[in-house]
Structures are given as C-alpha cells and as structure tokens.
Design a binder for these strands. Structure first.
Length: 282
DNA sequence: CTTTCAGCCTGGGCGC
DNA sequence: TGCGCCCAGGCTGAAA
C-alpha cells in the first residue's frame, strides 16, 4: 500500500532511470485509463519524475511548438511502475518480478515505450489512476508536504487547533497533510507516544511537537529503507522495500511492544485498522 | 460542519 | 483439488 515513502522511492528511482528518454509510443490495455488521450505524448521527452503527495508526476517536453504535458500516477493499493530496459534480456526482466504474482501479464495496464526500454504500469486491482494533464498537477493546494520546510511544529499546531476528529484518521487526511497512510499513521503515533483515539485539538504544544518530530523522523527513515513491502509494494526495479523490518506496531497485534513488552492492540478507526500500545501511548 | 459508509476491484487465504 | 466466502485498503461521493 504505497504511501509517501514508497511513492518517493519510485519517483527517485524513475527520475534516474528515464529522465531524458523519448516517448516512442503508448499502449493502453485498460479502457478505464482512457487510452486515446495518451497518444499525444508520442515524440515527447521525459523531463522530470517527482512525487506530489502520493502521486508520481512525470513532466514531458514536446518538440518544437508543442506545449509541455504532465502525467500523474496514483498507485493506490496495487499499482506499480516498473522500468524494463531493452538491454536486459526480456526473460531476466520478467524473472525480476515473476515471484510477485500480482505483477503479471494480466495486470499490465499501460506501457510507455521509451527510448531504451519500457515503463510499465501494472495494477492488479485497477484502483490506480493514470491521468494526462496540460498544466502541472499540483495536488491539493491546501495540503502540507510533511518533508517540506513549510511543515513546522507551529504550522501543525495551527492545523490541529480545534480539530475534533481523532488524531490518527486526521494524520491520513490528504487535504491537510500529503502522503501519510495507514501504516505510517500508526507508526508515527507510536513513536510520538500519542493515543490514536485522542482528538487532534486535544494535543498540547509539547505533544504536537512530538507528533511533528516523529512524522519527519519516520518518513525520512522509511525513505532511507526504500519503503515498506508486505504483499504489494515494490520499487521501479521490482525489488521490495525494507522498512517492514523496522515497523514497531503496524500489523503487530498481540506481539510485544518493543518499549514495554505489553501486547500491541488493534482497533478500528473509520473502517481502518490502527495498531498501538495502550501502555506507551497516552 | 461532521461522521459514516458503500463502491471501486481482484488476488490471496481460509474453511469445507 | 476446488469452490465459495471474505478481506485488504486509498479515495470519492452520497447519505445521515
């Protein structure tokens, strides 16, 4: 389930792999993705690949008078962007992700044929979105990027003041903070020692500072480890993330808390699992 | 304004 | 071996 660190990992890797490559053609295998739109990318050149919130945004430059274009990709649950270079034998490219069953011929939804290889969008469950834009897709303008300079404890305190909803679902609100999903919301609150059921507005200044600090710390650490892989996520080269080894509470129901040894508990908030330690989080 | 909830999808895991 | 059932979960939009 790709969140900010996973999407950042994919975007950074793709930036290295496909910047400067020319679009030779597009093949759309899923009618949901409105294929004809993408054809106009032919002849364009990949300029940048960046993360915006949970989206991968590719910018393209046209030749001559043609205006620039952008493509945004939301991986949702099972979406993947995989680079298959021409100079790798086809079989080894297939082998690279053959052991992950969800990435199969069947789940291939869209292919960008680029100079030197193919960028393939796989999505077993078809929740993902690939959109073509004529202006830069800015994401939610109001949302704060948690790894930007604009994300300060003071700004977070401002956003949280008066927030009546529970803090854990609040952290996942993409119109407030960009990129935090179910895994990292639980991990951040464990790190900060905050009970996920507290209302956002009930946190005092010191507690907000802890949430701020833990958010930056956990997200940066997860990016360093190339994200978290359970069954779904893998990077642009088909490899798994490594942050799952550092998870302290997510999916750890019944396991001992790494701090106090008590059992990690699972509760449901807004239809989603939350994992926490009731002894350590207040 | 808030909160809740169905729907989107399909592979995988489980029980029988 | 295989069938039916349920779950995963980000996000939208409708309903309460």
């Amino acid at each position: 389930m790709p969140e900010l660190p996973e999407v950042e990992t994919v975007a950074r890797q793709l930036a290295q792999l496909i910047s400067g490559r020319k679009v030779k053609g597009i093949t759309v295998r899923d009618e949901k993705l409105r294929g004809p739109e993408f054809v106009q990318l032919t002849g364009y050149t990949v300029k940048t690949v960046e993360r915006v919130g949970k989206r991968v945004v590719l910018s393209f430059t046209g030749s001559g008078e043609k205006p620039p274009l952008w493509v945004s990709v939301h991986l949702r649950m099972t979406g993947r962007l995989i680079w298959c270079p021409d100079d790798a034998p086809e079989r080894s490219c297939e082998d690279m992700y053959a052991h992950r069953r969800a990435v199969t011929e069947k789940s291939l939804r869209l292919t960008f044929a680029l100079s030197g290889g193919e960028l393939r969008f796989h999505d077993a469950r078809r929740f993902g979105m690939v959109l073509l834009h004529e202006t830069p897709p800015a994401g939610d303008q109001a949302a704060l990027e948690p790894l930007s300079d604009a994300f300060t404890a003071a700004r977070l305190a401002e956003l949280l003041s008066g927030a009546r909803g529970e803090i854990k679902p609040w952290l996942m609100r993409q119109d407030k903070l960009a990129g935090i999903g179910n895994i990292y919301a639980s991990e951040i609150l464990f790190d900060a020692g905050i009970d996920p059921r507290r209302s956002g507005g009930s946190l005092d200044a010191a507690e907000v500072r802890r949430v701020h600090r833990s958010t930056v710390k956990i997200l940066r650490l997860a990016i360093k480890y190339c994200g978290t892989t359970f069954s779904d996520f893998q990077d642009a080269g088909g490899k798994q993330g490594k942050f799952q080894k550092l998870l302290k509470v997510y999916k750890k129901e019944g396991s001992p808390c790494p701090t106090c040894g008590g059992a990690i508990e699972r509760i449901v908030q807004q239809q989603r699992s939350t994992f926490y330690c009731s002894a350590c989080q207040h």
